[in-house]
Amino acid sequence: MNKTRDRADLLAGLLIIAAACSMVFIAMRAASLGEYDDSDTYSVKVTFTNIGQLKEQSPVKSSGIIVGRIDSLAFDSEEFEAVAHLELYPRNRFPSDSSFSIVSTNLLGDQYINVEAGGADELLEDGDAKVGNSAIILEELISKFLFDKAGEEEESLL
C-alpha cells in the first residue's frame, strides 16, 4: 500500500515537473516575454502630420535593427497633429539631430518608425521632442500623380 502511494506521489510530482518544463520551453522559445524593462528606456516624443497604419507597440528601427517600441499614440488637439511617444532602448543612443520617419516593411506590410542617425555631437535625451516625416499614403500619391497628369494634358491642349 505504502509503495503504491509513494509511486503515486512521485508521478504527481512528475506531472508538475513536466508542466514546468513546458512553461519554460514556451517562455524561452515559443512566445516573447517582455523584451525590455520600462524603467530602463528613454522616451522621445515625435510629432507627425499623418501616422498612416502605425500601431502602438510597433517597432522603432534603425538600419533594420529594432532599437525601441512605440509606447503610445495620441492626437494633439491644439496643434492638430499625431503624437507618438517612443520608448528607446538605452544601449542605442542617437545624435540629437537624428530624423524620424514612418516607413513600411512592404506594400501591404506593417509600418514602423525608422531612425536615421544625424551628425550632431549631443545625444537625444529622455523627454526630447522631435518632428517626424509622415507616412506615405498610397492614395495621396496616386491622386497627386493623376492631377499632375491631368494638369500636363491641359497645358498641352492649350
Binding site: L15, I16, A18, A19, C21, S22, M23, F25, I26, A30
Partner: peptide, 15 residues
C-alpha cells in the same frame, strides 16, 4: 491544479 498543468503540457507538445 491539474488542468492548467495539463494545458501547459498540451501547448508545448502541440508546438
Amino acid at each position: 491544479i491539474s488542468l492548467p498543468l495539463l494545458t501547459a503540457i498540451l501547448m508545448a507538445i502541440a508546438i
